[in-house]
Design a protein around this nucleic acid. Structure first.
Lengths: 194, 194
DNA sequence: CGCGACGTTGATTTGCCTCAACGATTGTGG
DNA sequence: CCACAATCGTTGAGGCAAATCAACGTCGCG
């Protein structure tokens, strides 16, 4: 029961549950281990799960017709990851999720998520608030993309996600910022010579 | 009671309530009438309310240091509007909300929203799902801004929001797309001569 | 009617992309 | 553990999409 408590507190740090509730929650989660270079979701697949990242790093990206990749987000410790647009509407993925640093994940299905909402209303509140924060961060990103030039977007990125910066390749960051790897290289050089 | 039913069904179309619940909900809402050119929120103000748009049109925009405006979103009939980032965290607005076409709004405070979540769990579900959809549309916008050139973004916009297009000035659309008004003008010309 | 707001057009500039080549670093098999 | 290949990052040259600056139509409204 000790290690179970551990999982629960990892995922739902702020929430308190009864023993019965804990057991109920645990029955819906499954641990997954993924290696660098593996994919937990491919474009076109049905999206039935969301994942909580215990450790490691993943990236969610979109691939356009020319094969260019655009990173929507990185996920490290304590983040949830999925193609949420598809997950919420129980439809097919338009995104790919790649493991870029060996990771341990807790996996839960959409059905389980909804069952838990019914059984434990606090969980619906928990996920609602998570959503609100994710929404806010997306809003910030949209404004940043509209209002800031590439250099400032890069600076904002490394300030906002100092932990992620260490785990990912520069070309991943470039694809997150929406610029070419060469441009990022020049920006870095430019910043270095201040 | 008839007109009250009307308000409730306007806002929460999909949800069914008891008479008691309806009365409870109504006690928390207030009708607001705003004229073109008026503001329902200014940058720096405490954000305590969100608004449901019954009719008319508003725009939420961010202003940078140089005074340039970036439209985050338009709101027409059936949309909710606020500086949600600030609303969720009960903090100060970084956005301005301007009425660009005379509008009727239903207004509710953050406190009231949370009280209603406790009294009527269906409402928390309702708002959670709203959030999920808003999150999905923001995700789409981020990817569009990263992956598409200005012309394609404009075409996507007028296809996605044909109703909004009629209500707003071209320079509002330009500020939504993140381009100069002159560029939008040239894109429109370009599209016209196909 | 005339003024101000809005939209268009032209000329020029600029930030970033693309293409190409070349260092640096990492990983792997002998 | 080294050698070599593959991957990743950097640099340079040239091009393009969109910004900026400036001027000029056009429309709606007091």
């Amino acid at each position: 029961m000790d290690s179970n408590d551990c999982i629960i507190t990892e995922i739902f740090k702020e929430v308190l549950f009864s023993e019965e509730e804990k057991q109920n929650i645990l029955n819906h989660f499954e641990t997954v281990q993924v290696k660098k270079g593996e994919f937990i979701l491919n474009e076109g697949e049905q999206v039935n799960h969301q994942y909580f990242v215990l450790n490691g790093c993943l990236r969610t990206y979109f691939t356009d017709k020319q094969g260019k990749e655009y990173t929507l987000q990185f996920a490290i410790k304590d983040w949830w990851v999925s193609d949420f647009t598809a997950f919420f509407s129980a439809s097919k993925a338009i995104m790919t999720i790649e493991c870029i640093q060996e990771a341990t994940l807790y996996k839960i299905s959409k059905q389980s998520t909804e069952d838990l909402y019914k059984d434990i209303p606090q969980l619906e509140t928990f996920f609602r608030i998570k959503m609100e924060k994710a929404f806010a961060s997306f809003q910030k990103r949209i404004l940043g993309n509209l209002a800031l030039p590439a250099k400032e977007r890069y600076i904002t990125f490394i300030n906002t996600y100092p932990n992620i910066e260490k785990s990912v390749k520069n070309y991943h960051i470039a694809s997150y910022l929406g610029i070419a790897t060469e441009s990022l290289s020049r920006i870095r050089k430019d910043i270095a010579t201040d």
